[in-house]
Design a protein around this nucleic acid. Structure first.
Lengths: 345, 345
DNA sequence: CTGTTAGCGCTTTCAC
DNA sequence: GTGAAAGCGCTAACAG
């Protein structure tokens, strides 16, 4: 057994601390974990000694022996989108407060990447797993279900959650925006977004939008499909494509998110198209950028921070086997800006 | 020993697979890890059997026994800043390609949070650790040094790296921008950024800027110090404060990053201040937003993707004990936009 | 190519 | 309050 010891530079192990303190290994273990059953005096002495010996407990050994870890795995499609970095940040903070360590990966909206990640993650026996943004492969679902690891889906209010779910109703959000726009008198909407397979939630919103317009006998056309990154540049490029591809521009453009919508506005500005006079533009999410614009983009504000908060507490509750609901649906809010107007006026 | 087994739902362990295959545990271990020393036939059979039994290997047990894990810990100050999410994303991808799993946390620029994170991280005996954006506490350095875990500092070109380092020279970057601006004839610069203690790198850039202006007998004043989030809103608010606090506005404002600079531009627009006629504005980083603006912000482009790439390969090289350099300094590039002009013309 | 032995560093259980 | 024994699930080392 001549292999290098796992502990840094052959650093102190629990046995070394025990020897130094003249107590058993178990007493050290209890003292360091703050578990009942050690006299105050001994505890303090042991803690001081451990520090002196620069003892660093091995989470690997600890979790293996204890049959549970404090790891929580979180998967998001991308950090490129401000939405997911906000949701993620809130969750991570909440988990940290409860003593959990977040392990994390991005999937680029690819279900097979998510599947591989779930498999790797399960191998670490985490306390919980959070999935977001994409639909999951059947194998992903199966693995998760069998693992009996508490699992939470965030962002979309799933109709058929694996376990727990916190999110918004994307179809309804799209529908509401559609109603708002038809209410203003818009009749020839266009759409700029990702390819359908790429982002299921976006597609659900588009379906909602279409549905609302269909009630007024209108179709959403054209639907410009962009490749990632779906941010500023994608929006500008999308609008360029939209305008160049038609002789009869739409009266309103619904765009995947506020950042893309901003890019689109820049393209309009460059072409001398006046918004909202010549065309309406609406985004999605209510991102921070919007708050500094002198002419704000009409958008649907999503409750990202709240979502992260609620998701974290729901998952933590489940991990500690507290009884709770399984599903939370959060509301969105349409916030009119100066990129749309009432056509009847 | 009546505790619940760690394996999901009492799932199969390596011994179960061995029994089913009629071979020893070691043969299964070798077959599943793809290690030399198992006949093709047996290997395929074992793999099929493992799949059938839904065997999920425990990374906990595996890493403990093997005395190393495939975890890499990465700490960034914040994901709010597009810069760090880009660097992080590139690194994470590179690590993944090499079979490493990224564990991650944000520190909000707080050295004590970084210190706590490093302590937790070391407990997992990761293959490597990446630190970014902040100066480290003495205890953080000591822990890392003693742990003998390969450590890489990214973003800043540290003068005294713990181990490996990939970054830019922030002082030089600030100085270069200062020279560029004095060259254009600017004489009364102002600055909008974070508090000095908050972000050491930003302070270094400011020092460089000051230094260049000092050579022309000019001082950078006022320096507006904002609290986070240092994004769009912070920039707008900062410019508001700057303009309201003086009767004699600066001839150029150097702003922490492009997003803040954009916010500042919005404030100028609202007040009827024409940029660059009445005042110059420069940002930092060359963020994506800039690429869609019709009037781009003069900025310093930083090589984020390259930084992440180089950092990952350097750390991986060190982990596999390949000989390499310890430090890489990357160049930045000033890209003039339409928010500054030559005052001599 | 395959198996046996001896742990990795810690926590559980149970006895004192 | 404290300790001894018995693993957690896996891999390194060595012997065939």
């Amino acid at each position: 057994m001549a292999r290098e010891p796992l502990t840094p530079k052959g650093g102190a192990k629990i046995a070394d601390v025990a020897r130094a303190a003249g107590v058993s290994i178990m007493t050290v273990s209890r003292a360091l974990r703050g578990v009942e059953g050690v006299s105050m005096a001994k505890r303090d002495e042991i803690i001081a000694l451990a520090r002196e010996l620069r003892y660093s407990p091995s989470s690997l050994a600890g979790s293996l022996a204890a049959a549970h870890s404090n790891l929580i795995g979180v998967s998001v499609p991308t950090l490129d989108d401000a939405v997911f970095s906000e949701i993620f940040e809130t969750m991570r903070n909440a988990f940290l407060r409860s003593g959990f360590q977040t392990v994390f990966d991005t999937t680029d909206y690819a279900t097979h990447r998510e599947e591989e990640w779930v498999e790797r993650m399960i191998a670490w026996r985490p306390a919980g797993i959070v999935l977001s943004g994409v639909d999951h492969s059947p194998r992903t679902k199966r693995m998760l279900l069998r693992s009996s690891i508490p699992t939470l889906e965030i962002w979309s209010h799933a109709q058929d959650p694996i376990d727990l779910c916190v999110g918004i109703d994307h179809f309804a959000a799209g529908y509401e925006m559609g109603q708002y726009l038809t209410g203003l008198g818009y009749k020839r909407p266009a759409y700029i977004g990702p390819r359908a397979v790429y982002d299921v939630r976006a597609q659900q919103r588009l379906d909602g939008l279409k549905s609302a317009f269909a009630e007024m006998g209108c179709t959403v056309d054209p639907c410009i499909r962009m490749a990632p990154p779906l941010s500023f540049e994608g929006g500008r490029l999308g609008m360029q494509r939209l305008l160049e591809g038609t002789l009869n521009p739409p009266d309103v453009s619904s765009i995947l998110n506020d950042h893309m919508a901003f890019g689109a506005l820049m393209e309009c500005e460059a072409r001398g198209i006046s918004i909202p006079k010549d065309m309406g533009v609406v985004g999605f999410n209510g991102l921070r950028l919007n708050s500094v614009l002198n002419r704000r983009i009409t958008t649907t504000v999503t409750p990202r921070a709240q979502m992260g908060e609620r998701a974290a507490s729901l998952l933590i509750a489940k991990i500690s086997k507290a009884a709770t609901v399984n599903t939370i649906k959060l509301p969105v809010k349409i916030v009119p800006g100066e990129t749309s107007r009432d056509l009847q006026e």
